[in-house]
Design a protein around this nucleic acid. Sequence first.
DNA 1: CGGCCAATTGATTAAACTCAATCTGCGTGG
DNA 2: CCACGCAGATTGAGTTTAATCAATTGGCCG
Lengths: 257, 257
Amino acid sequence: MQDLDAGTPAISHEAIDGTSSALVRKLGRMVLLSTAEVTFLEGLQANRAKFEKGRELVADGAEYPATFIVRRGWVARQKILEDGRRQILSFALPGDFLGLHVNFRRVAAYDAVALTDTEVALLDPNRVLEIYRDYPILASGLSWATVREFNVLGEQAVRLGRRSAAERMCHLLLELWYRLDLVDEAGERSLEFPLTQRDASDTLGLSQVHVNRTFRYLKEAGIIDYSRGTVAIRSFDKLKAIAAFEPEYLAPFQLRK
Amino acid sequence: MQDLDAGTPAISHEAIDGTSSALVRKLGRMVLLSTAEVTFLEGLQANRAKFEKGRELVADGAEYPATFIVRRGWVARQKILEDGRRQILSFALPGDFLGLHVNFRRVAAYDAVALTDTEVALLDPNRVLEIYRDYPILASGLSWATVREFNVLGEQAVRLGRRSAAERMCHLLLELWYRLDLVDEAGERSLEFPLTQRDASDTLGLSQVHVNRTFRYLKEAGIIDYSRGTVAIRSFDKLKAIAAFEPEYLAPFQLRK
DNA sequence: CGGCCAATTGATTAAACTCAATCTGCGTGG
DNA sequence: CCACGCAGATTGAGTTTAATCAATTGGCCG
Protein backbone atom coordinates (compact mmCIF):
# COMPACT_ATOMS: atom_id res chain seq x y z
CA MET A 1 0.00 0.00 0.00
CA GLN A 2 2.90 2.30 0.69
CA ASP A 3 4.35 1.61 -2.72
CA LEU A 4 4.36 4.52 -5.07
CA ASP A 5 3.87 4.04 -8.76
CA ALA A 6 7.18 3.67 -10.50
CA GLY A 7 8.42 6.93 -11.90
CA THR A 8 6.33 9.20 -9.72
CA PRO A 9 8.30 11.34 -7.33
CA ALA A 10 7.82 10.61 -3.67
CA ILE A 11 7.15 13.98 -2.17
CA SER A 12 7.93 14.08 1.49
CA HIS A 13 8.92 16.76 3.88
CA GLU A 14 9.88 16.82 7.49
CA ALA A 15 7.53 19.78 8.07
CA ILE A 16 4.51 17.73 6.98
CA ASP A 17 3.24 15.02 9.28
CA GLY A 18 0.08 13.63 10.80
CA THR A 19 -0.50 16.82 12.76
CA SER A 20 -0.51 18.97 9.62
CA SER A 21 -3.75 20.42 8.37
CA ALA A 22 -5.58 18.61 5.59
CA LEU A 23 -4.78 21.50 3.24
CA VAL A 24 -1.07 21.09 3.82
CA ARG A 25 -1.32 17.33 3.41
CA LYS A 26 -3.19 17.83 0.14
CA LEU A 27 -0.97 20.49 -1.39
CA GLY A 28 2.10 18.69 -0.09
CA ARG A 29 1.15 15.75 -2.28
CA MET A 30 1.23 17.90 -5.40
CA VAL A 31 3.83 20.56 -4.78
CA LEU A 32 7.11 20.40 -2.93
CA LEU A 33 6.48 22.85 -0.11
CA SER A 34 9.22 24.67 1.77
CA THR A 35 9.07 24.88 5.53
CA ALA A 36 8.20 28.56 5.17
CA GLU A 37 5.30 27.71 2.93
CA VAL A 38 4.01 25.06 5.27
CA THR A 39 4.21 27.55 8.13
CA PHE A 40 2.42 30.14 6.05
CA LEU A 41 -0.38 27.76 5.11
CA GLU A 42 -0.89 26.75 8.72
CA GLY A 43 -0.92 30.41 9.75
CA LEU A 44 -3.55 31.10 7.13
CA GLN A 45 -5.90 28.85 9.06
CA ALA A 46 -5.64 30.63 12.39
CA ASN A 47 -9.17 31.98 12.34
CA ARG A 48 -11.44 29.01 12.86
CA ALA A 49 -15.10 28.23 13.19
CA LYS A 50 -17.24 25.17 13.71
CA PHE A 51 -20.52 24.33 12.03
CA GLU A 52 -22.84 21.67 13.29
CA LYS A 53 -24.22 19.08 10.95
CA GLY A 54 -27.00 20.62 8.90
CA ARG A 55 -25.84 24.21 9.27
CA GLU A 56 -25.49 26.47 6.28
CA LEU A 57 -22.08 28.04 5.69
CA VAL A 58 -23.25 30.16 2.76
CA ALA A 59 -26.67 30.63 1.21
CA ASP A 60 -27.41 30.73 -2.51
CA GLY A 61 -27.61 34.37 -3.51
CA ALA A 62 -25.95 35.66 -0.34
CA GLU A 63 -22.42 36.98 0.04
CA TYR A 64 -19.62 34.80 1.23
CA PRO A 65 -18.58 36.04 4.64
CA ALA A 66 -15.11 34.70 3.90
CA THR A 67 -13.16 32.13 1.96
CA PHE A 68 -13.39 28.83 3.82
CA ILE A 69 -10.84 26.09 4.15
CA VAL A 70 -12.37 22.84 5.34
CA ARG A 71 -10.32 21.33 8.15
CA ARG A 72 -12.66 18.58 9.34
CA GLY A 73 -15.95 17.21 8.05
CA TRP A 74 -17.90 17.27 4.81
CA VAL A 75 -19.65 20.22 3.22
CA ALA A 76 -22.08 19.92 0.30
CA ARG A 77 -22.51 22.52 -2.40
CA GLN A 78 -26.13 22.35 -3.51
CA LYS A 79 -28.83 24.13 -5.46
CA ILE A 80 -32.50 24.03 -4.46
CA LEU A 81 -35.09 24.64 -7.16
CA GLU A 82 -38.22 26.65 -6.46
CA ASP A 83 -40.35 23.49 -6.21
CA GLY A 84 -37.98 21.84 -3.76
CA ARG A 85 -35.97 19.67 -6.09
CA ARG A 86 -32.38 19.55 -4.91
CA GLN A 87 -29.12 18.86 -6.68
CA ILE A 88 -25.86 18.44 -4.83
CA LEU A 89 -23.08 19.72 -7.07
CA SER A 90 -20.04 18.52 -5.20
CA PHE A 91 -18.55 17.97 -1.79
CA ALA A 92 -15.90 20.00 -0.03
CA LEU A 93 -13.79 17.56 1.96
CA PRO A 94 -10.96 18.29 4.39
CA GLY A 95 -8.31 20.34 2.64
CA ASP A 96 -10.76 21.84 0.16
CA PHE A 97 -11.67 25.49 -0.28
CA LEU A 98 -15.06 27.11 -0.48
CA GLY A 99 -15.09 30.46 -2.25
CA LEU A 100 -11.42 30.38 -3.22
CA HIS A 101 -11.83 32.77 -6.14
CA VAL A 102 -14.46 34.98 -4.62
CA ASN A 103 -12.95 38.39 -4.13
CA PHE A 104 -14.69 41.47 -5.42
CA ARG A 105 -18.01 39.85 -6.22
CA ARG A 106 -18.83 37.51 -3.39
CA VAL A 107 -22.33 36.36 -4.21
CA ALA A 108 -22.69 32.59 -3.91
CA ALA A 109 -24.49 30.65 -6.62
CA TYR A 110 -25.25 27.67 -4.38
CA ASP A 111 -25.81 26.75 -0.76
CA ALA A 112 -22.93 25.32 1.20
CA VAL A 113 -24.24 23.02 3.91
CA ALA A 114 -22.38 21.01 6.54
CA LEU A 115 -23.14 17.32 6.16
CA THR A 116 -21.26 16.49 9.34
CA ASP A 117 -20.01 18.53 12.23
CA THR A 118 -17.38 20.58 10.51
CA GLU A 119 -14.40 22.72 11.37
CA VAL A 120 -13.29 25.38 8.93
CA ALA A 121 -10.77 28.17 8.72
CA LEU A 122 -11.97 31.58 7.58
CA LEU A 123 -9.85 34.02 5.65
CA ASP A 124 -10.27 37.25 3.80
CA PRO A 125 -10.66 36.42 0.11
CA ASN A 126 -8.15 39.14 -0.68
CA ARG A 127 -5.48 37.08 1.02
CA VAL A 128 -5.89 34.61 -1.83
CA LEU A 129 -4.79 37.32 -4.22
CA GLU A 130 -1.80 37.93 -1.92
CA ILE A 131 -0.85 34.30 -2.22
CA TYR A 132 -0.93 34.58 -5.98
CA ARG A 133 1.20 37.69 -5.75
CA ASP A 134 3.77 36.64 -3.18
CA TYR A 135 3.98 32.84 -3.09
CA PRO A 136 4.49 31.44 -6.59
CA ILE A 137 4.70 27.83 -5.46
CA LEU A 138 1.53 28.11 -3.46
CA ALA A 139 -0.10 29.94 -6.36
CA SER A 140 0.62 26.88 -8.50
CA GLY A 141 -0.90 24.76 -5.79
CA LEU A 142 -4.05 26.86 -5.78
CA SER A 143 -4.26 26.65 -9.56
CA TRP A 144 -3.98 22.91 -9.30
CA ALA A 145 -6.72 22.81 -6.68
CA THR A 146 -8.87 24.98 -8.94
CA VAL A 147 -8.42 22.75 -11.95
CA ARG A 148 -9.16 19.73 -9.81
CA GLU A 149 -12.43 21.26 -8.62
CA PHE A 150 -13.39 21.81 -12.24
CA ASN A 151 -12.54 18.25 -13.10
CA VAL A 152 -14.55 16.90 -10.21
CA LEU A 153 -17.57 18.94 -11.23
CA GLY A 154 -17.06 17.89 -14.83
CA GLU A 155 -17.09 14.23 -13.86
CA GLN A 156 -20.24 14.91 -11.89
CA ALA A 157 -21.83 16.22 -15.09
CA VAL A 158 -20.75 13.08 -16.95
CA ARG A 159 -22.17 10.90 -14.21
CA LEU A 160 -25.47 12.74 -14.30
CA GLY A 161 -25.75 13.00 -18.06
CA ARG A 162 -24.40 9.75 -19.40
CA ARG A 163 -24.06 7.08 -16.75
CA SER A 164 -26.54 4.54 -15.42
CA ALA A 165 -27.59 4.47 -11.79
CA ALA A 166 -25.08 1.79 -10.77
CA GLU A 167 -22.30 3.45 -12.74
CA ARG A 168 -23.02 6.77 -11.09
CA MET A 169 -22.91 5.29 -7.63
CA CYS A 170 -19.73 3.29 -8.16
CA HIS A 171 -18.00 6.23 -9.76
CA LEU A 172 -18.94 8.55 -6.92
CA LEU A 173 -17.76 6.10 -4.28
CA LEU A 174 -14.40 5.72 -5.98
CA GLU A 175 -13.99 9.45 -6.39
CA LEU A 176 -14.71 10.00 -2.72
CA TRP A 177 -12.33 7.24 -1.68
CA TYR A 178 -9.49 8.70 -3.76
CA ARG A 179 -10.11 12.22 -2.58
CA LEU A 180 -10.26 11.18 1.05
CA ASP A 181 -7.22 8.99 0.64
CA LEU A 182 -5.20 11.96 -0.56
CA VAL A 183 -5.74 13.64 2.78
CA ASP A 184 -5.33 10.39 4.75
CA GLU A 185 -8.99 10.20 5.64
CA ALA A 186 -9.90 7.02 3.77
CA GLY A 187 -9.64 3.57 5.26
CA GLU A 188 -7.66 0.86 3.56
CA ARG A 189 -10.77 -0.41 1.81
CA SER A 190 -13.49 1.77 3.26
CA LEU A 191 -14.67 5.29 3.75
CA GLU A 192 -16.87 7.25 6.08
CA PHE A 193 -20.05 7.96 4.17
CA PRO A 194 -22.12 10.52 6.03
CA LEU A 195 -24.77 10.93 3.31
CA THR A 196 -28.29 9.72 3.82
CA GLN A 197 -29.77 7.87 0.89
CA ARG A 198 -31.73 11.03 0.15
CA ASP A 199 -28.48 13.02 0.00
CA ALA A 200 -27.03 10.39 -2.28
CA SER A 201 -30.09 10.57 -4.52
CA ASP A 202 -29.75 14.34 -4.79
CA THR A 203 -26.10 13.91 -5.67
CA LEU A 204 -26.67 11.23 -8.26
CA GLY A 205 -29.80 12.65 -9.86
CA LEU A 206 -31.90 9.63 -8.86
CA SER A 207 -34.87 9.02 -6.59
CA GLN A 208 -34.22 7.96 -3.05
CA VAL A 209 -35.94 4.66 -3.74
CA HIS A 210 -33.73 3.95 -6.68
CA VAL A 211 -30.60 4.71 -4.68
CA ASN A 212 -31.78 2.24 -2.09
CA ARG A 213 -32.24 -0.46 -4.73
CA THR A 214 -28.88 0.30 -6.30
CA PHE A 215 -27.10 0.08 -2.96
CA ARG A 216 -28.79 -3.21 -2.32
CA TYR A 217 -27.77 -4.50 -5.72
CA LEU A 218 -24.14 -3.59 -5.06
CA LYS A 219 -24.28 -5.21 -1.65
CA GLU A 220 -25.85 -8.41 -2.98
CA ALA A 221 -23.30 -8.55 -5.76
CA GLY A 222 -20.61 -8.53 -3.07
CA ILE A 223 -19.05 -5.33 -4.35
CA ILE A 224 -19.54 -3.11 -1.32
CA ASP A 225 -20.86 -3.25 2.19
CA TYR A 226 -23.01 -0.36 3.17
CA SER A 227 -24.48 0.61 6.46
CA ARG A 228 -25.36 3.96 7.90
CA GLY A 229 -22.34 6.11 7.76
CA THR A 230 -19.80 3.72 6.28
CA VAL A 231 -19.07 2.09 2.96
CA ALA A 232 -16.64 -0.79 2.75
CA ILE A 233 -15.25 -1.59 -0.66
CA ARG A 234 -15.07 -5.33 -1.07
CA SER A 235 -13.74 -5.17 -4.61
CA PHE A 236 -12.02 -2.14 -6.03
CA ASP A 237 -11.70 -4.00 -9.30
CA LYS A 238 -15.39 -4.64 -9.70
CA LEU A 239 -16.22 -1.13 -8.63
CA LYS A 240 -13.80 0.26 -11.20
CA ALA A 241 -15.09 -2.05 -13.87
CA ILE A 242 -18.66 -0.90 -13.39
CA ALA A 243 -17.76 2.77 -13.12
CA ALA A 244 -15.07 2.73 -15.79
CA PHE A 245 -13.22 4.84 -13.28
CA GLU A 246 -10.13 6.72 -14.42
CA PRO A 247 -8.59 8.55 -11.47
CA GLU A 248 -6.34 10.83 -13.51
CA TYR A 249 -8.74 13.74 -13.28
CA LEU A 250 -8.00 13.90 -9.57
CA ALA A 251 -4.38 14.41 -10.53
CA PRO A 252 -2.21 13.42 -7.63
CA PHE A 253 1.19 12.14 -8.66
CA GLN A 254 0.98 8.98 -6.64
CA LEU A 255 -2.15 6.88 -6.75
CA ARG A 256 -2.87 3.95 -4.50
CA LYS A 257 -5.05 1.10 -5.76
CA MET B 1 -32.67 47.60 -24.99
CA GLN B 2 -29.97 50.07 -24.01
CA ASP B 3 -31.62 50.62 -20.65
CA LEU B 4 -29.69 49.32 -17.71
CA ASP B 5 -31.45 47.99 -14.68
CA ALA B 6 -31.95 50.71 -12.16
CA GLY B 7 -29.19 50.79 -9.62
CA THR B 8 -26.59 48.92 -11.64
CA PRO B 9 -23.59 51.00 -12.63
CA ALA B 10 -23.16 51.66 -16.32
CA ILE B 11 -19.58 50.73 -16.99
CA SER B 12 -18.27 52.35 -20.11
CA HIS B 13 -14.87 53.28 -21.33
CA GLU B 14 -13.57 55.08 -24.33
CA ALA B 15 -10.93 52.40 -24.86
CA ILE B 16 -13.58 49.71 -25.27
CA ASP B 17 -15.64 49.66 -28.44
CA GLY B 18 -16.92 47.35 -31.14
CA THR B 19 -13.39 46.60 -32.32
CA SER B 20 -12.30 45.33 -28.90
CA SER B 21 -11.75 41.64 -28.37
CA ALA B 22 -14.54 39.63 -26.81
CA LEU B 23 -12.41 39.16 -23.69
CA VAL B 24 -12.13 42.90 -23.21
CA ARG B 25 -15.83 43.36 -23.84
CA LYS B 26 -16.58 40.68 -21.27
CA LEU B 27 -14.21 41.83 -18.53
CA GLY B 28 -15.14 45.43 -19.26
CA ARG B 29 -18.68 44.63 -18.26
CA MET B 30 -17.57 43.47 -14.82
CA VAL B 31 -14.53 45.52 -13.93
CA LEU B 32 -13.67 49.11 -14.72
CA LEU B 33 -10.61 48.69 -16.88
CA SER B 34 -7.96 51.36 -17.34
CA THR B 35 -6.65 52.11 -20.81
CA ALA B 36 -3.41 50.41 -19.82
CA GLU B 37 -5.26 47.28 -18.82
CA VAL B 38 -7.24 47.22 -22.05
CA THR B 39 -4.03 47.57 -24.00
CA PHE B 40 -2.42 44.82 -21.97
CA LEU B 41 -5.33 42.45 -22.54
CA GLU B 42 -5.29 43.08 -26.27
CA GLY B 43 -1.53 42.54 -26.32
CA LEU B 44 -2.00 39.25 -24.51
CA GLN B 45 -3.88 37.99 -27.56
CA ALA B 46 -1.17 38.69 -30.11
CA ASN B 47 -0.37 35.06 -30.78
CA ARG B 48 -3.33 33.67 -32.68
CA ALA B 49 -4.45 30.46 -34.28
CA LYS B 50 -7.47 29.23 -36.16
CA PHE B 51 -9.21 25.91 -35.82
CA GLU B 52 -11.67 24.59 -38.32
CA LYS B 53 -15.01 23.25 -37.23
CA GLY B 54 -14.54 19.78 -35.78
CA ARG B 55 -10.86 20.21 -34.88
CA GLU B 56 -9.58 19.32 -31.48
CA LEU B 57 -7.81 22.05 -29.51
CA VAL B 58 -6.86 19.77 -26.63
CA ALA B 59 -7.33 16.05 -26.10
CA ASP B 60 -8.45 14.40 -22.88
CA GLY B 61 -5.33 13.19 -21.10
CA ALA B 62 -2.94 15.28 -23.22
CA GLU B 63 -1.10 18.41 -22.17
CA TYR B 64 -2.45 21.82 -22.98
CA PRO B 65 -0.10 23.38 -25.50
CA ALA B 66 -1.13 26.76 -24.12
CA THR B 67 -3.87 28.67 -22.38
CA PHE B 68 -6.46 29.62 -24.98
CA ILE B 69 -8.61 32.70 -25.19
CA VAL B 70 -11.52 32.25 -27.57
CA ARG B 71 -11.83 35.20 -29.92
CA ARG B 72 -14.39 33.88 -32.39
CA GLY B 73 -16.50 30.75 -32.54
CA TRP B 74 -17.69 28.09 -30.13
CA VAL B 75 -15.62 25.40 -28.44
CA ALA B 76 -17.11 22.44 -26.56
CA ARG B 77 -15.52 20.80 -23.55
CA GLN B 78 -16.50 17.15 -23.68
CA LYS B 79 -15.78 13.74 -22.25
CA ILE B 80 -16.05 10.56 -24.29
CA LEU B 81 -16.63 7.30 -22.42
CA GLU B 82 -14.96 4.09 -23.48
CA ASP B 83 -18.15 2.82 -25.15
CA GLY B 84 -18.66 6.01 -27.11
CA ARG B 85 -21.13 7.80 -24.90
CA ARG B 86 -20.40 11.50 -24.96
CA GLN B 87 -21.13 14.29 -22.52
CA ILE B 88 -20.55 17.92 -23.36
CA LEU B 89 -19.64 19.69 -20.13
CA SER B 90 -19.79 23.30 -21.23
CA PHE B 91 -19.09 25.68 -24.06
CA ALA B 92 -16.28 28.17 -24.38
CA LEU B 93 -17.72 31.19 -26.20
CA PRO B 94 -15.91 34.31 -27.38
CA GLY B 95 -14.16 35.93 -24.48
CA ASP B 96 -13.79 32.68 -22.56
CA PHE B 97 -10.61 30.92 -21.52
CA LEU B 98 -9.59 27.33 -21.94
CA GLY B 99 -6.97 26.15 -19.49
CA LEU B 100 -6.84 29.39 -17.52
CA HIS B 101 -5.49 27.76 -14.38
CA VAL B 102 -3.31 25.18 -15.99
CA ASN B 103 0.25 26.00 -15.11
CA PHE B 104 2.52 23.39 -13.66
CA ARG B 105 0.30 20.41 -14.34
CA ARG B 106 -1.16 20.85 -17.80
CA VAL B 107 -2.96 17.59 -18.40
CA ALA B 108 -6.47 18.13 -19.72
CA ALA B 109 -9.36 16.17 -18.23
CA TYR B 110 -11.59 16.62 -21.27
CA ASP B 111 -11.47 17.19 -24.99
CA ALA B 112 -11.85 20.72 -26.30
CA VAL B 113 -13.38 20.65 -29.77
CA ALA B 114 -14.24 23.49 -32.13
CA LEU B 115 -17.96 23.46 -32.93
CA THR B 116 -17.53 26.20 -35.51
CA ASP B 117 -14.57 27.67 -37.28
CA THR B 118 -12.79 29.28 -34.40
CA GLU B 119 -10.12 31.86 -33.76
CA VAL B 120 -8.18 31.72 -30.51
CA ALA B 121 -5.27 33.45 -28.87
CA LEU B 122 -2.55 31.31 -27.33
CA LEU B 123 -0.54 32.30 -24.31
CA ASP B 124 1.91 30.76 -21.93
CA PRO B 125 -0.03 29.63 -18.85
CA ASN B 126 2.64 31.24 -16.70
CA ARG B 127 1.55 34.61 -17.98
CA VAL B 128 -1.68 34.06 -16.09
CA LEU B 129 0.32 33.93 -12.89
CA GLU B 130 1.99 37.17 -13.96
CA ILE B 131 -1.40 38.78 -14.30
CA TYR B 132 -2.27 37.72 -10.78
CA ARG B 133 1.04 39.12 -9.59
CA ASP B 134 1.15 42.41 -11.46
CA TYR B 135 -2.39 43.45 -12.42
CA PRO B 136 -4.67 43.36 -9.38
CA ILE B 137 -7.73 44.60 -11.26
CA LEU B 138 -7.29 42.03 -13.98
CA ALA B 139 -6.66 39.40 -11.33
CA SER B 140 -10.09 40.19 -9.91
CA GLY B 141 -11.50 39.87 -13.38
CA LEU B 142 -9.92 36.45 -13.82
CA SER B 143 -11.29 35.38 -10.45
CA TRP B 144 -14.71 36.51 -11.54
CA ALA B 145 -14.39 34.59 -14.80
CA THR B 146 -13.29 31.53 -12.83
CA VAL B 147 -16.24 31.69 -10.48
CA ARG B 148 -18.56 32.17 -13.43
CA GLU B 149 -17.21 29.04 -15.11
CA PHE B 150 -17.91 27.14 -11.92
CA ASN B 151 -21.40 28.49 -11.77
CA VAL B 152 -22.09 27.58 -15.38
CA LEU B 153 -20.87 24.06 -14.83
CA GLY B 154 -22.87 23.87 -11.63
CA GLU B 155 -26.05 24.85 -13.45
CA GLN B 156 -25.24 22.22 -16.04
CA ALA B 157 -25.16 19.65 -13.24
CA VAL B 158 -28.54 20.87 -11.99
CA ARG B 159 -29.99 20.67 -15.49
CA LEU B 160 -28.71 17.14 -15.92
CA GLY B 161 -29.61 15.90 -12.49
CA ARG B 162 -32.89 17.53 -11.65
CA ARG B 163 -34.60 19.08 -14.65
CA SER B 164 -36.94 17.62 -17.25
CA ALA B 165 -36.06 17.54 -20.93
CA ALA B 166 -37.96 20.74 -21.78
CA GLU B 167 -36.59 22.51 -18.73
CA ARG B 168 -33.06 21.54 -19.66
CA MET B 169 -33.40 22.84 -23.16
CA CYS B 170 -35.04 26.12 -22.22
CA HIS B 171 -32.50 26.71 -19.48
CA LEU B 172 -29.59 26.05 -21.80
CA LEU B 173 -30.96 28.35 -24.50
CA LEU B 174 -31.37 31.17 -22.02
CA GLU B 175 -27.90 30.66 -20.60
CA LEU B 176 -26.38 30.78 -24.04
CA TRP B 177 -28.36 33.87 -24.98
CA TYR B 178 -27.21 35.72 -21.84
CA ARG B 179 -23.62 34.69 -22.25
CA LEU B 180 -23.54 35.66 -25.89
CA ASP B 181 -25.32 38.91 -25.15
CA LEU B 182 -22.60 39.87 -22.68
CA VAL B 183 -20.08 39.83 -25.51
CA ASP B 184 -22.51 41.40 -28.02
CA GLU B 185 -22.92 38.20 -29.96
CA ALA B 186 -26.62 37.57 -29.32
CA GLY B 187 -29.40 38.91 -31.49
CA GLU B 188 -32.20 40.94 -30.03
CA ARG B 189 -34.33 37.83 -29.66
CA SER B 190 -32.21 35.18 -31.25
CA LEU B 191 -28.88 33.43 -31.17
CA GLU B 192 -26.64 31.52 -33.49
CA PHE B 193 -26.95 27.89 -32.50
CA PRO B 194 -24.26 25.84 -34.20
CA LEU B 195 -25.04 22.59 -32.39
CA THR B 196 -26.50 19.64 -34.22
CA GLN B 197 -29.31 17.89 -32.42
CA ARG B 198 -26.81 15.20 -31.53
CA ASP B 199 -24.55 17.81 -29.94
CA ALA B 200 -27.53 19.18 -28.07
CA SER B 201 -28.45 15.69 -26.87
CA ASP B 202 -24.93 15.14 -25.58
CA THR B 203 -25.10 18.46 -23.78
CA LEU B 204 -28.49 17.85 -22.23
CA GLY B 205 -28.05 14.19 -21.35
CA LEU B 206 -30.88 13.11 -23.66
CA SER B 207 -31.17 11.01 -26.79
CA GLN B 208 -31.02 12.72 -30.13
CA VAL B 209 -34.58 11.65 -30.82
CA HIS B 210 -35.84 13.15 -27.62
CA VAL B 211 -34.09 16.44 -28.33
CA ASN B 212 -35.84 16.51 -31.68
CA ARG B 213 -39.22 15.99 -30.06
CA THR B 214 -38.53 18.60 -27.40
CA PHE B 215 -37.50 21.16 -30.01
CA ARG B 216 -40.67 20.42 -31.91
CA TYR B 217 -42.75 20.80 -28.79
CA LEU B 218 -41.20 24.20 -28.09
CA LYS B 219 -41.75 25.27 -31.69
CA GLU B 220 -45.37 24.14 -31.73
CA ALA B 221 -45.98 25.88 -28.44
CA GLY B 222 -44.81 29.09 -30.12
CA ILE B 223 -41.94 29.55 -27.67
CA ILE B 224 -39.02 29.36 -30.06
CA ASP B 225 -38.28 29.02 -33.72
CA TYR B 226 -35.53 26.63 -34.55
CA SER B 227 -33.85 25.86 -37.77
CA ARG B 228 -30.36 24.70 -38.60
CA GLY B 229 -27.95 27.03 -36.97
CA THR B 230 -30.31 29.56 -35.42
CA VAL B 231 -32.74 29.75 -32.55
CA ALA B 232 -35.21 32.62 -32.35
CA ILE B 233 -36.80 33.26 -29.01
CA ARG B 234 -40.44 34.10 -29.49
CA SER B 235 -41.15 34.46 -25.79
CA PHE B 236 -38.48 35.09 -23.21
CA ASP B 237 -41.18 34.97 -20.57
CA LYS B 238 -42.42 31.52 -21.47
CA LEU B 239 -38.87 30.26 -21.82
CA LYS B 240 -37.99 31.61 -18.40
CA ALA B 241 -41.17 30.22 -16.90
CA ILE B 242 -40.41 26.72 -18.12
CA ALA B 243 -36.74 26.85 -17.18
CA ALA B 244 -37.20 28.74 -13.91
CA PHE B 245 -34.21 30.64 -15.15
CA GLU B 246 -32.35 32.90 -12.72
CA PRO B 247 -29.54 34.69 -14.52
CA GLU B 248 -27.70 35.82 -11.40
CA TYR B 249 -25.21 32.98 -11.60
CA LEU B 250 -23.84 34.57 -14.75
CA ALA B 251 -23.15 37.63 -12.64
CA PRO B 252 -22.93 40.60 -14.93
CA PHE B 253 -24.01 43.83 -13.28
CA GLN B 254 -26.42 44.82 -15.98
CA LEU B 255 -28.87 42.28 -17.30
CA ARG B 256 -31.10 42.76 -20.30
CA LYS B 257 -34.47 40.98 -20.53
C1' DC C 1 -43.02 3.85 25.03
C1' DG C 2 -43.88 7.03 21.35
C1' DG C 3 -42.31 9.66 17.67
C1' DC C 4 -39.48 10.52 13.94
C1' DC C 5 -36.39 9.96 10.33
C1' DA C 6 -34.32 6.88 7.33
C1' DA C 7 -34.41 2.58 4.96
C1' DT C 8 -36.78 -0.99 2.63
C1' DT C 9 -40.10 -3.22 -0.37
C1' DG C 10 -43.86 -3.85 -3.78
C1' DA C 11 -46.87 -2.15 -7.44
C1' DT C 12 -47.71 0.90 -10.98
C1' DT C 13 -46.68 4.78 -14.07
C1' DA C 14 -44.18 7.86 -16.84
C1' DA C 15 -40.28 9.79 -19.08
C1' DA C 16 -37.04 8.99 -22.08
C1' DC C 17 -34.61 5.39 -24.76
C1' DT C 18 -33.79 2.26 -28.66
C1' DC C 19 -34.74 0.63 -33.06
C1' DA C 20 -36.26 1.34 -37.57
C1' DA C 21 -37.51 3.96 -41.26
C1' DT C 22 -38.18 8.01 -43.91
C1' DC C 23 -37.35 12.68 -45.20
C1' DT C 24 -34.69 16.94 -46.33
C1' DG C 25 -31.11 19.95 -47.72
C1' DC C 26 -26.83 20.38 -49.63
C1' DG C 27 -22.55 19.43 -51.93
C1' DT C 28 -20.19 16.82 -55.58
C1' DG C 29 -19.23 14.62 -59.73
C1' DG C 30 -20.89 13.27 -64.21
C1' DC D 1 -28.46 20.60 -64.62
C1' DC D 2 -29.33 16.43 -62.51
C1' DA D 3 -28.34 12.09 -59.98
C1' DC D 4 -26.24 10.47 -56.08
C1' DG D 5 -24.71 10.28 -51.50
C1' DC D 6 -24.47 11.79 -46.95
C1' DA D 7 -25.37 13.96 -42.66
C1' DG D 8 -28.75 15.64 -39.98
C1' DA D 9 -33.69 15.93 -38.90
C1' DT D 10 -38.09 13.81 -38.29
C1' DT D 11 -41.49 10.36 -37.14
C1' DG D 12 -43.58 6.03 -35.34
C1' DA D 13 -43.57 1.86 -32.50
C1' DG D 14 -42.24 -0.66 -28.80
C1' DT D 15 -39.10 -1.09 -24.67
C1' DT D 16 -36.45 0.12 -20.59
C1' DT D 17 -35.06 2.67 -16.79
C1' DA D 18 -36.08 4.99 -13.15
C1' DA D 19 -39.87 7.69 -10.99
C1' DT D 20 -43.92 7.87 -8.15
C1' DC D 21 -47.09 6.15 -4.88
C1' DA D 22 -48.00 3.52 -0.94
C1' DA D 23 -46.99 0.98 2.87
C1' DT D 24 -44.04 -1.19 6.22
C1' DT D 25 -39.95 -1.74 8.88
C1' DG D 26 -35.95 -0.47 11.68
C1' DG D 27 -33.20 2.42 14.80
C1' DC D 28 -32.43 5.93 17.70
C1' DC D 29 -33.53 9.51 20.97
C1' DG D 30 -36.01 11.79 24.46
